[in-house]
């Protein structure tokens, strides 16, 4: 099977408009983490902004705009992670400084992971990147989109975008 992991087929390989990464210095300091957004296409959609309690996901001039983040205001609350219909928001906390990071990832599959359990961390094409330890399982909007907090090696946060419960 000739499966080319191209952008046109839904795989991100570079930063482009609609892809937000926190500034490194602030990221290192901010306990609770900062949001990473991967929404590189103009579509009529804005729940990330309307669910953001601090205005960190900047108000959309036009509902078709791609999201922009004001990192000074982001608290890493992950309400957007749970609200985004495209599951395109991820909160990543690298403030720990010991080589591990905490990722808050959206999860809508079964079975649910258990706190303390080990899950497979998946990359953008579903490849297994590494194992991760589940630190918490939250359901911020009580709407069955879970936000799973997973401890992972810090150098893998750019690759991990999903988990699989094994």
């Amino acid at each position: 099977m000739k499966d080319i992991a191209s952008f046109e087929s839904g795989v991100l390989s570079e930063v482009r408009p609609g892809v937000s990464r926190p500034p490194k210095e602030l990221w290192r300091k901010r306990k609770g983490g900062l949001v990473v957004v991967e929404c590189p296409q103009r579509i009529p959609c804005n729940p990330c902004h309307t669910s953001c309690p601090t205005g960190a996901i900047v108000k959309f001039e036009d509902i078709n705009d791609v999201p922009a983040v004001d990192y000074a205001k982001c608290t890493g609350c992950a309400l957007c992670v749970a609200k985004c219909p495209g599951l395109a928001c991820f909160v990543i906390d690298i403030a720990c400084g010991d080589g591990t990071a905490l990722m808050k990832l959206p999860y809508e599959m079964l079975p649910l992971p258990e706190r303390g359990g080990v899950v497979k961390c998946l990359g953008r094409t579903g490849e297994v990147v590494c194992d991760g330890e589940v630190k918490a399982v939250a359901e911020p909007h009580r709407d069955r989109t879970m936000v799973v907090h997973v401890a992972v090696p810090e150098d893998k946060v750019g690759d991990i975008r999903a988990i699989r419960v094994v």
């Binding site: 099977m1 579509i43 495209g86 599951l87 395109a88 998946l122 953008r124 579903g126």
Partner: peptide, 25 residues
């Protein structure tokens, strides 16, 4: 997909992709 790119929203493709589904353009 017969076209050279996904026709639906890119984020929907990314959701399926990261769960390991190949998308053959």
């Amino acid at each position: 997909e017969a076209a050279p790119r996904v026709g639906g929203y890119w984020v929907h493709a990314a959701k399926a992709r990261r769960l390991g589904v190949p998308i053959l353009l």
